[in-house]
Design a protein around this nucleic acid. Structure first.
Lengths: 188, 188
DNA sequence: AAATTAATAGGACGGCCATCCTATTAATAA
DNA sequence: TTATTAATAGGATGGCCGTCCTATTAATTT
């Protein structure tokens, strides 16, 4: 693995810190400490904190799209693809347990801050929403594809928040089973 | 309506500001401006910001308990009571639309801040959880009462987050219908 | 009425933060 | 090789924040 550019290192560090400690609670000092560069050097790459946030969101959008594309080719059926989405709750459990859903928690924080980038952050949700909608359409649920996509989105949000708050992995596993059964039943 | 004590005014103002703008984003100046008292006077009532947070959480616990008690007497059946809980999503839609679920968003924020009061905040969820569990037990679901309570909790969290993020009341209404149908079916 | 306590006001302090500025070094282009 | 640009370092600035301190006024008690 070759060394990343300073720019990429900053974005990665900010990405993790925003996720783990929140956007507002993360300072320039925190990021520069993690990347081991000086605070002054920072401003050669990003003019403002909001610029970093935008870069982080753009990176998340790209990563999300890449993941969806991968699922699209790796899984033969729409059911299988939707189950990939459902399963990330357990795959990323260690992080979700501590910090919740990276998409939902950022959207919620930016909404409360009334931050200029809040719509930008929502785009990550939109990516999942449209992709899920497409899968449900392919399953023949043409009329309510979007509603079903939103349902799955809300399901994962709720389970992430509650199982994280109560530190309860068992509940997350039970809910994954439930939603998988629901999905199977949907396609009888 | 008689005038509230300064103490109560501070707690109420802090409660609203913590909900609307987040705990960290709310400053002493914000609160004292809203209550129209000086910053100095503040410290006669609360020594630290954490003390205010604790007082706000205690107030929320009391208000929640009062609401649950009211439902308990107002509604004759456990189904009716659970539907009261489900319905607050629509009752409080105007606020949820802008600021999400007051319980979930505070728990999430305090978890990211690794704040000393995060467990205290979770207690509000626990109040709902145990109350819902009791209702499901009375419906005859003795073995999985807690799991069902958690399911309803997660449902409301997810719908609040997603419908708020997408500013979509219609989706919230659809989901309320769905969960009501699920509840009816559960009791065949 | 006098003494004591509660409530309020507002300035002061030290810390952290985002941002800016300038100087120095490394890399690249001419 | 020289000129120019990119990258880095670190101090300076001004603002806000939580907290503290002291003085003044209102309320209560003796």
């Amino acid at each position: 693995m070759s060394k990343q550019s300073t720019y990429q290192q900053i974005v990665n560090a900010a990405d993790n810190l925003f996720y783990q400690n929140g956007f507002e609670h993360t300072s320039f000092t925190d990021i520069s400490n993690l990347v081991s560069i000086s605070r002054g050097n920072f401003y050669h790459h990003f003019k403002t904190k909001n610029d970093i946030l935008s870069a982080v969101i753009k990176a998340r959008l790209a990563n999300t799209q890449a993941m969806l594309d991968e699922w699209q080719t790796a899984e033969a059926t729409p059911e299988g693809r939707i189950k990939c989405y459902i399963h990330i709750l357990l795959t990323n459990w260690d992080k979700i347990q501590h910090y919740g859903c990276p998409v939902g928690t950022l959207c919620t924080e930016l909404a409360k801050l009334n931050h200029a980038s809040k719509e930008e952050a929502t785009q990550v949700f939109t990516l999942f929403r449209q992709w899920l909608k497409q899968q449900f359409k392919q399953l023949g649920h043409v009329d309510d594809a979007d509603q079903l996509a939103m349902h799955v989105l809300a399901w994962s949000q709720g389970v992430a928040t509650i199982s994280s708050t109560f530190q309860n992995k068992e509940f997350a596993e039970q809910e994954v089973q439930k939603i998988n059964a629901w999905l199977d039943k949907l396609n009888h």
